[in-house]
Amino acid sequence: MIDAPLLSVRGLTKHYGATMGCADIAFDLYEGEVLAVVGESGSGKSTLLRCLASDMRPSAGSAIYRTEDGRTHDVFVMDDAERDALIGGEWGFVRQDPAEGLRMNVSAGGNIGEQLIVSGVRHFGRIRTAAVEWLDRVEIGARYIDQTPKVFSGGMRQRLQIARNLVMRPRLVFMDEPTSALDVSVQARLLDLIRRLVQELGLAVVIVTHDLSVARLLSHRILVMRHGRILESGLTDQVLDDPAEPYTQLLVSSVPAV
């Protein structure tokens, strides 16, 4: 039923002066699809994500995004107002460090409510109701609504960041190593939560991770990157069970029992 991709990236290249961040990246992402970008540190995966999420301007390439109304836009040539509207509405961005993605001196309720306010909600009661609902959905609990994330644990902060990003029901969410800063048991619980929400809301996700088990658990398709280029791509299970490239074989074999 879905014919056109939600996001279509071609020839994406980013140079930092003479050094290359990433080069010639191309992929299509369809609605409801989870794409994992894996690779070692310095492989260019975060550069790729930051370009896509408009944190950074790429040196070359295009990324065609199809908005809810069916129109297509090149993300890299949109003006600021259009981009801001996307970032606050149809897109979410979950960062590795929740302190970057949250307002640390604003209460949990305010953090969740902010995007509602941006979208024009000017009603305390309605913001409050949405905040309570989302604090429950991400398993923080409504009793923390007036606490600031400063007093939250790392796992709670990350869950709050997810709530803040999902309250507007985005269609596409970028995630940059959302679980890497957490200890293993908290990681597992958060991954379960992300997987459940992604399914419930039918989100399309681009998730960057160096952790192959995260990719295995969450993603449908996978891009393996090295030295700024895509080395191998395909269905996650296929790539991880039967890697074609020697480098991917090395990556997979260096993780015990994925």
Partner: peptide, 18 residues
Amino acid sequence: AAGDYSILYLKLYEDIAR
């Protein structure tokens, strides 16, 4: 320039909540 005053309304939310 963007007419985005949401941060001021967020402050109102915070005041009322607190």
